[in-house]
Computed example of a mutant assay.
Amino acid sequence: MDIADTQRLSTLICPSCGHASTEEMPLDACVFFYDCPACGARLKPKPGDCCVFCSYGDIPCPPIQAGGKCC
């Protein structure tokens, strides 16, 4: 899969409060931190994951979707 064909939107679920927020993922960067807009919890990737989208999103980040390695 070409990176240009990847899905750009992923819904992040906060593990602290369960709030769901759909966010656009960058094609060329990892997102290491995300502040939940509902409760303010700062999310960071789980061990072994490259970004918050891979840990808490319903769609992994674009480099992983493309079958590559992330940051």
Rank of each mutant, 00 (worst) to 15 (best):
K44V: 12
A20D: 02
K44T: 14
C61Y: 03
C71Q: 09
F32A: 08
Y56G: 00
D5L: 14
K46W: 11
C36I: 02
V31S: 02
L43G: 01
L43K: 05
P63K: 10
P45Y: 03
C30F: 07
P45L: 05
D28W: 10
C17W: 11
A41M: 07
D49H: 15
F33D: 01
P60M: 07
A4Q: 14
G67P: 02
S16I: 06
D5S: 13
P47K: 12
Q65T: 09
T22M: 12
C30D: 15
G67M: 09
E24A: 13
H19D: 08
M25E: 02
Y34A: 13
C50Q: 12
A66C: 02
C61Q: 04
D2H: 14
P62L: 06
E23C: 09
E23N: 12
C36K: 04
T6Y: 03
C70P: 08
D2W: 13
K46N: 13
D28H: 13
D5A: 12
A38F: 11
D28I: 10
M25K: 05
G48K: 06
G18L: 07
I64K: 14
F33W: 09
T6P: 11
G18T: 05
G18N: 09
M1R: 09
P26F: 04
T22Y: 10
K44L: 03
E24Q: 10
D58S: 08
K46T: 14
C70N: 04
F32W: 14
G67C: 06
V31C: 07
L9G: 00
E24P: 00
F53W: 07
C71K: 01
C50R: 06
T11E: 09
P47Q: 10
D49W: 05
Y56C: 03
G40M: 03
C36T: 02
I59M: 11
L43Q: 04
T22P: 07
M1E: 11
D35C: 03
Y56W: 12
C30Q: 12
P15T: 12
G67K: 06
M1C: 08
G48M: 02
F53R: 00
I64R: 08
C50T: 11
Y56V: 05
A4V: 01
C50V: 09
A66F: 08
K44E: 14
H19E: 15
P60Y: 07
A66Q: 06
H19M: 09
E24K: 12
V52I: 15
M25W: 04
D5G: 10
P47W: 06
P47I: 07
R42C: 14
I3G: 02
D2C: 00
Q7F: 07
D28R: 12
P26R: 04
P37A: 12
V52K: 04
L27M: 14
C61W: 04
D35I: 14
S21G: 00
A66I: 04
L9M: 13
A66S: 15
D5K: 11
P37K: 13
V52N: 01
G40R: 10
F32Y: 14
